[in-house]
């Protein structure tokens, strides 16, 4: 299939598909561990500022993506409070780079993973953790041997959903990482460029079709994984 796709697409279009997959994968890798940690905090802990953290995590769902991209630009730009030391000390420049596109995508899809994983944690029967305690399992032991394995379906489903959503992130990416072919021009950006180019309708249609099929396939995959794992876990 990949071979036929490659034939059907121009090298530039094919590059956009590959770049999208790359950016989405990187974004999930970056956000997975922090998302699990924050989901656990929100599901299991009562602490001051919990509501604030909850709101902050959900911000990308309600704030316009362009605003998120602008915020990232302010923070991670080469003269921003985080971007400046990164650039000056480590030579890392996030703006206008593939890594930057991945960061913008990660921020946007972060709430999706957190929500899925948090639901997963909330569904783990606290009685099982209590049973593990009486059997001598300390907090870390309990988390690794009982809570985390039982949350695995939710984590995987959340990761796949975030990956699917990440393939299509537009506003935050174009604002923070710009629209550079081969660097930051992911699928939706390529579609946008195609629609702006005279005679680009056919390319736009091809890319939109790919985008659509990828999203559907991944959503079905997420559903299938969740169901299979729930079965394996005996629920």
């Amino acid at each position: 299939m990949a071979f036929r796709l490659q034939q059907a697409l121009s090298p530039d279009e094919w590059q956009a598909v590959r770049l999208s997959l790359d950016v989405a994968a990187r974004s999930v890798l970056v956000s997975l561990l922090p998302a699990i940690a924050i989901a656990w905090l929100l599901a299991r802990r009562r602490f001051p500022g919990r509501t604030l953290l909850d709101a902050l995590v959900h911000l990308p769902l309600v704030v316009p993506p362009v605003v998120i991209g602008w915020g990232l630009l302010m923070l991670f730009g080469v003269r921003g409070p985080i971007g400046a030391p990164l650039h000056d000390w480590f030579g890392i420049r996030l703006v206008f780079s593939t890594s930057g596109a991945a960061l913008a995508t990660a921020v946007m899809s972060f709430p999706l993973i957190v929500r899925a994983v948090r639901l997963g944690f909330e569904h783990v029967d606290p009685g099982l953790e209590a049973a593990a305690r009486t059997l001598g399992a300390g907090p870390v032991d309990r988390f690794l041997t009982i809570t985390l394995p039982l949350t695995a379906p939710a984590i995987l489903a959340g990761a796949v959903t975030a990956f699917a959503a990440g393939l299509g992130e537009f506003g935050a990416v174009i604002t923070f990482a710009s629209n550079i072919p081969g660097e930051t021009q992911t699928l939706p950006l390529a579609i946008y460029s195609a629609t702006q180019t005279p005679g680009g309708e056919a390319a736009a249609a091809r890319l939109a079709g790919i985008s659509f099929s990828l999203a559907i396939t991944l959503l079905l995959l997420a559903e299938w994984i969740a169901r299979r794992m729930h079965l394996a876990l005996g629920r």
């Binding site: 593990a132 009486t134 001598g136 876990l233 005996g234 629920r235």
Partner: peptide
């Protein structure tokens, strides 16, 4: 003492076996 250090065995009404 936390339960994990009390070394008491407990059998609950629902068996609470680890499903995975």
């Amino acid at each position: 003492l936390p339960p994990e250090r009390r070394r008491l065995g407990m059998v609950f009404q629902e068996a609470r076996l680890f499903p995975h």
